[in-house]
Amino acid sequence: MTASSDGHGTRLCAGRVVIVTGAGRGLGRAHALAFAAEGAKVVVNDLGVGLDGAGGSSPGPARQVVDEIEAAGGEAVAHDGDIATGAGAASLIGVALDTFGRLDTLVNNAGFLRDRMLVNLDEDDWDAVLRVHLKGHFLTLKHAATHWRAETKAGRTTVARVINTSSGAGLLGSVGQGNYSAAKAGIVGLTLVAAAELGRYGVQANAIAPAARTRMTEQTFAETMAAPGEGTGAFDAMAPENVSPLVVWLGSAASDGVTGRVFEAEAGRITVMEGWHPGPSVDRGARWTPAEAGEAARQLLAEAGPGRPVYGAR
């Protein structure tokens, strides 16, 4: 990937220390390589488990990305701890501080799928997906924010960035992905709270809802995610590398003033998402009967625009 600059010949993230979780493959790997290309020192986290989170962990995926960064002249360190545990999340922040002496940007990306229709969704599959996505985001954010708060109280200026990973499934829902959709919707709420609470410590928090070819999508959406044939010269719209430029910019000092927002990123398209906002409303100034409330609700729905369909709905 070709590096850009800030207009003065300096790479966009020169001197910054960046953590990327789930960075052994797919989007996380693309983000880690893109940050390194822009001069960042990168902590590459990956537990190295299977697509559904099962199987033993392996340091291989994280180590391989570190090797790629170092081969290109960059600096990186691997972390293969479980960020959905307090100890694992704390050790991740510790690796950044112990290795590079600082932390500037946290990119939460780790996750896996256990897709089932709701009537077939086991409690364990619900818990596992909420744990890695939502709890994993919370714990790394908590420990990073604790560090940045301490820096601010010590009188040191903080220009910190958090980029969380939601999904179209979290914004609209997705058939067969009740656990994943709930976790990704929760990540949006967590991001909004983080932006509101942590601004006083110099922290900006935003979320992305990416669409790209990864282990989680290349089979489920095989036709949509397919790469163009070799030699065609066609733009590979679903390459995960297409999402990373926005993530790198959000993780840099150049994104000053951008916080509490959600961006969709797919192919060459970037969209600022606008979430729940008040639509048609009526206030009678007194309590409704159920029948009256129902009549009022139907009238308001007739005035409102149609909702967007859930992914996979027919």
Rank of each mutant, 00 (worst) to 15 (best):
V162M: 15
G199F: 13
H79W: 12
I69W: 14
D122T: 00
H143T: 04
A54C: 14
V247Y: 12
T271G: 07
L172Y: 15
L301C: 14
Y180A: 10
A297L: 15
L106V: 09
A253V: 06
P280M: 09
F112M: 07
H31T: 00
S91P: 01
A96P: 10
A265H: 06
L121M: 07
L172N: 13
L103Q: 03
I83A: 10
Q204M: 15
L106S: 02
R287A: 15
S166P: 03
E70N: 11
R298G: 13
S255A: 09
L171M: 02
G9Y: 07
G229Q: 12
T157M: 11
R131C: 11
Q177D: 08
G7N: 06
M273W: 14
A234H: 13
H277D: 05
P240T: 00
G24S: 03
I69G: 11
V77A: 03
L246P: 14
I187M: 05
C13K: 06
A313R: 13
T259A: 10
F138I: 01
A87I: 13
G268S: 14
T21R: 07
R261P: 11
G233L: 02
T99M: 05
T217R: 01
R11M: 13
G26N: 12
V42N: 01
V247K: 11
P309W: 00
A212M: 15
A207T: 05
V175E: 07
I270L: 14
E295R: 11
G178E: 03
R11A: 14
L198D: 01
A291I: 06
I93G: 03
Q64V: 10
M238D: 01
L134M: 07
H79R: 10
G9S: 01
N164V: 12
L250T: 01
R215S: 12
V188R: 09
A30N: 02
V243T: 02
I163R: 08
R114V: 04
T2G: 13
R116C: 04
V43R: 06
D98L: 03
A30V: 00
R308C: 11
V44F: 06
A96K: 03
G26M: 01
E223D: 15
A150C: 11
F100T: 04
N206F: 03
G285Y: 05
L103C: 00
H137D: 10
K142A: 07
H133G: 02
A78V: 04
N109Q: 05
P245M: 12
K153S: 14
V49A: 15
G111P: 07
R114L: 12
A211G: 13
A267F: 00
V77E: 15
D80F: 08
R114Y: 03
G202E: 03
A145K: 03
R215P: 06
R314C: 00
A239S: 09
R287G: 12
R25V: 00
K135S: 02
V66E: 11
M1P: 15
T152A: 09
G173F: 08
A196N: 14
A76H: 12
A34N: 09
A302P: 04
A209F: 06
A3H: 12
V107M: 06
A212I: 03
A150Q: 15
A185S: 08
V77H: 13
Q219S: 14
G251P: 06
R213G: 06
V77L: 08
C13Y: 09
A205H: 12
G136A: 09
T157V: 07
W148V: 00
G312V: 09
T146F: 02
H143I: 10
P228D: 03
D236Y: 02
L139M: 10
S252T: 01
Q299A: 15
W148K: 02
F235Y: 12
L92Q: 04
